[in-house]
């Protein structure tokens, strides 16, 4: 197992270098260091001298990828790419181009993102699994048909509609919770109710449809028939046997997204005024803050790799037949 984990972590290194390189190229195709300086210094009355000073202070006066003026290894290391990227591998994110410490900002903004993402994941899983098992229980009846129609309709509606509709109905018409906002500690609870409800409802369509498919694959298998033949109640058959055996595909989806939970959701956070990480990257792109973009893409990649590794490890827990070597 340890050898397997080590090997997977080593595989991650070239992936991360590649992701970094791709981010770098894509970013600088659109923005030049001069654009970044102008964005940070403002449009009005800015002088070329100020731009040059800004670039020099932040190391953006170096060539992007290849330094023909340097000698030896310097042709590669004396570049913006090398100077800005290497520290990421020891999780030193440095300062944003506007001067703020990125690591500190991430540590502050991850908690509100988690405060929404975790309940949404747990409540959503519970509802989606229960509802899909219910549909499977009533397979072939009007409940099954009606539910599938409802789920397809729910899947077809834009997430934005749920948000605006939820704010309008629950916040504006019924006056039950604040329309948007956030607070710290327990005071955050009243602000979380609406985004959690909206996010869970907007995920029911796709989630339940997917899990229904997983369960239907299992429901006709021999072990289910055997369980029924033993006289087990249908509820026990579904929740213990069918659910247990359908866990692998469910886990594949769920465990892979676990580390990404704290990256937040852009639209939800934006509309509900949640100060999470969801809008951090988009704000940085809009502000042409390469330091934040680079850090967030790197972090996202690392977390995704960890998520996939955790998925593989979790297989061994739910299916004794799986061995990692």
């Amino acid at each position: 197992m340890s050898a397997y984990i080590l090997r997977r972590l080593l595989y991650a290194l070239p992936i991360l270098i590649g992701v970094n390189l791709l981010t770098f190229v894509l970013f600088f195709v659109v923005n030049s260091p001069e654009d970044m300086a102008r964005m940070q210094l403002g449009e009005r009355r800015v002088t070329q001298e100020a731009i040059d000073t800004w670039k020099a202070e932040r190391g953006y006066d170096l060539p992007l990828l290849y330094n023909a003026q340097a000698r030896g290894l310097g042709v590669v290391t004396q570049t913006i790419f090398a100077q800005k990227s290497l520290k990421l591998f020891v999780f030193q994110f440095g300062s944003s181009d506007s001067g703020r410490d990125i690591g500190y900002d991430i540590s502050q903004r991850m908690w509100p993102s988690l405060a929404i993402a975790v309940p949404v994941l747990l409540v959503g899983l519970a509802i989606n699994i229960s509802y899909s098992l219910l549909i499977v229980f009533f397979r072939g009846t009007y409940i099954d048909t009606g539910s599938v129609v409802l789920l397809v309709a729910m899947m077809s509606i834009s997430g934005l509609f749920y948000i605006i509709g939820g704010q309008f109905l629950i916040g504006k018409l019924l006056h039950l919770v604040p329309i948007s906002g956030y607070d710290t500690g327990l005071n955050a609870l009243k602000f979380l109710i609406l985004p959690v409800i909206v996010s869970v409802i907007s995920g029911i369509g796709s989630g339940t449809r997917l899990y229904r498919t997983f369960f239907l694959e299992e429901i006709y298998r021999d072990y289910v028939r055997t369980a029924r033949a033993k006289g087990l109640r249908e509820r026990t058959v579904l929740f213990r046997h069918v659910l247990g055996n359908a866990l692998i595909p469910i886990l594949t989806g769920v465990v892979a997204v676990l580390p990404l939970l704290f990256m937040g959701s852009l639209i939800t956070e934006s509309f509900f005024g949640i100060p999470g990480l969801g809008s951090y990257t988009i704000d940085a792109i809009n502000n042409q803050d390469f330091a934040i973009v680079r850090a967030m893409v790197f972090l996202g990649s690392v977390l995704y790799i960890i998520g996939l590794l955790l998925t593989d490890l979790s297989y061994t827990l739910v299916d004794p037949r799986v061995r990692l070597a």
């Binding site: 704010q167 504006k172 006056h175 329309i179 948007s180 509309f271 509900f272 005024g273």
Partner: peptide, 14 residues
């Protein structure tokens, strides 16, 4: 912090 105009407007009306 209010990034979107719709929630802002609704909260003003409230």
């Amino acid at each position: 912090l209010e990034k979107e105009s719709i929630p802002y407007w609704n909260k003003f009306l409230q």
